[in-house]
């Protein structure tokens, strides 16, 4: 059963990667990266059960944390072109 889920997740990850490659806009790609991250978390968890080593869940949890922070960081970077304190930056709303 875990094999079925792992294969389904693997195919979904491949499809999302196709969307990541195809784009066409930046936000499509960010969305694809975020989606890919969530699928990876689930894939790691399923893989842990498949190998009979549920310790993998720690890695999955860590990946979930990093995925969220990473998505927000990418979006912030593309909006302000920097990652520091926003209140000290000139307001550059949106990309040119």
């Amino acid at each position: 059963m875990f094999l079925v889920a792992a294969i389904a997740l693997f195919i979904s990850m491949a499809l999302v990667l196709v969307r990541l490659y195809a784009g066409p806009t930046l936000y499509d790609r960010v969305l694809a990266v975020n989606s890919f991250g969530t699928l990876t978390v689930l894939f790691i968890a399923v893989l842990g059960f498949l190998n009979g080593r549920p310790d993998f869940l720690d890695i999955a949890l860590l990946y979930a944390l990093i995925n969220f922070v990473g998505t927000i960081a990418i979006l912030k970077f593309f909006r302000y072109r920097a990652l520091g304190d926003v209140s000290q930056m000139p307001d550059t709303k949106g990309r040119k």
Binding site: M1, F2, A5, A8, L15, L31
Partner: peptide
């Protein structure tokens, strides 16, 4: 678990098939 896998697959197909962002 099997239906969960199916739904992730459907979501991924949707991200490919839908026309705009």
């Amino acid at each position: 678990i099997v239906s969960g896998g199916a739904f992730t697959l459907i979501g991924a197909i949707g991200t490919l098939r839908f026309p705009d962002f």
